[in-house]
Design a protein around this nucleic acid. Sequence first.
RNA 1: CGGGAUGUGGCGCAGCUUGGUUCAGCGCGCGUGCCUUGGGAGCACGAGGCCGGGGGUUCAAGUCCCCCCAUCCCGACCA
Length: 566
Amino acid sequence: MRVSELLIPTLREVPAEAEVASHRLLLRAGFIRKVAAGIYTYLPLAQRVLMKIKAIVREEMNRIGGQEILLPIIQPAELWHQSGRWNVYGPELFRLQDRHKRDFCLGPTHEEIVTALVAAEVRSYKQLPLLLYQIQNKYRDERRPRFGLLRGREFVMKDLYSFDRDEEGLDRSYQKMFEAYTRVFSRMGLRFRAVEADTGAIGGSVSHEFMVLADSGEAVIVYCPDEACGYAANVEKAESMFVPETGGEEAPLEMVATPGMRTVEEVIGFLGVPAKRLVKTLLYRTERGLVAALVRGDREVNEVKLQNHLDVLTLELADEAAIEAATGAPVGFSGPVGLKVPLVVDREVAALKAAVTGANKADAHFVNVCPGRDFPVTGTADIRLVAAGDPCARCGKPLAEVRGIEVGQVFKLGEKYSRVMEAFYLDEQGIQRPMVMGTCGIGITRAMAAAVEQHHDADGIIWPVSIAPFHAVVLPVNVQDAEQAAAAGRVQQALAAAGVEAVLDDRAERPGVKFKDADLVGYPVRVTAGRHVAEGMVEVHNRRTRESALVPEEEAVTAVKKFLEA
RNA sequence: CGGGAUGUGGCGCAGCUUGGUUCAGCGCGCGUGCCUUGGGAGCACGAGGCCGGGGGUUCAAGUCCCCCCAUCCCGACCA
């Protein structure tokens, strides 16, 4: 193929809207164009990359016995009512009506529709296990689309659904999915880590996320540096070892004046006590009313854990007015003593014997607060956010922290969907049982962007060979020079014949322009036909290592392959 | 959804404070010609903009006011 004939609209200047590397480079290198917030057109180069990623994914899904299907994007509301998610999914669900005012949505995920399919078509244990998958667009009306392809409202996803007879079957399917994902991301040339994860809106019990390690990632991962331990989790899910501290001896409750001392820092400085003896009382608004979350002063609340603990759909910090109404005091002086709001007490708080809390009164705090004695503790929870340095929940060694981009997630769903969607089968005894489900998804378009995040430099993208839009570009320095043009053409033909995907940059541009574009687009290998063509030589260049080799034209294919395999 | 900011040829921006003859302009890109050909050359000519949309104020509005829309960035969700 010839660059002169391809639609590769590279930009010299950086579009103002792009912040992160993948967004910037994919726009500049002519891979994508924005149509609306979080909605993109994929140009030929991007489409080629996506096709490669999909091919890898298909191979690995087929390898574990997955059968590819194609489910509709537009889904009737009834199915979502049946699963109960029509309301649960909230404003992120793109909703629409047909001419008869019937409700539909654009699929953000396909549990409902695939489970309904299997419920209707599968009856016997003999047909299980069943692994169905598709590669298709997904729609989520994100609160805030951003970072280009990393968080779009329309994106391409591979989603697979597993149906098993029982938990043991699900365990096997889960293991298959997990291993397939490990192979997919390895083959894509990504540095990644599988971490324990919260199950979020999909629901279910066990879950792992596959994180591409990148500083631009939105997700925070904590992990145990001890390889033998290997604990790693999304911070939303992460737990640390519970080390109870009493914070001193039990003593009579006492109110002290703390004029103007609202923040943890102010109070500990004023009273001369460590932050870990303080209790933060945070009021949250939920659909069931206000709740108060209690964590130690040196901790942060993990809102995902809190939401799971409370089993509520909405959770957000209460505003000042609500806090004052509930506590009778301005913000900064809330405390659990005498508070007429349900309390969620972190286990570290429950362990304290003499804590400092707000007194629900302006400019006052309580000291020597004893949980259980001074306020009710009905069951405790782990609602704190784990941070780097906390002891590993498994081995006690200090945890480390790193950022990542979530490109895939595996779930054990259990019977959550099969029961409500009535996906039952008959076992050998003729007893009707719900199927046990699992699911996993890969963000195809996000994975492309994640690859760019991980593989680029100041000059442009550096595609891993396995997903590069083309393996090589052949670049005649001067297309007016008949010898150079001819040599470039021959090399490109030879490469194509040898199964190397090569483009010929035959544009009548000056060499600098073509070199810059080659670096920007990120072809793994470049072959330059320049002044050395007179001696029968061409230059072969490795984009990633910047290595160059001057080789006889006949050996160009071998040299290119060597770089591609390196 | 809160907070902040920005919308001016394809891209990047200036002009707005102090309305009006430098008000529609610059750089890049694009077209034609010449020239050049190992890291985004040079010269010449040229095409391209209802200044995000609507409403006001005014003799006069990119410029001032109001409303809307879009986009981006920071916080709560997810592949």
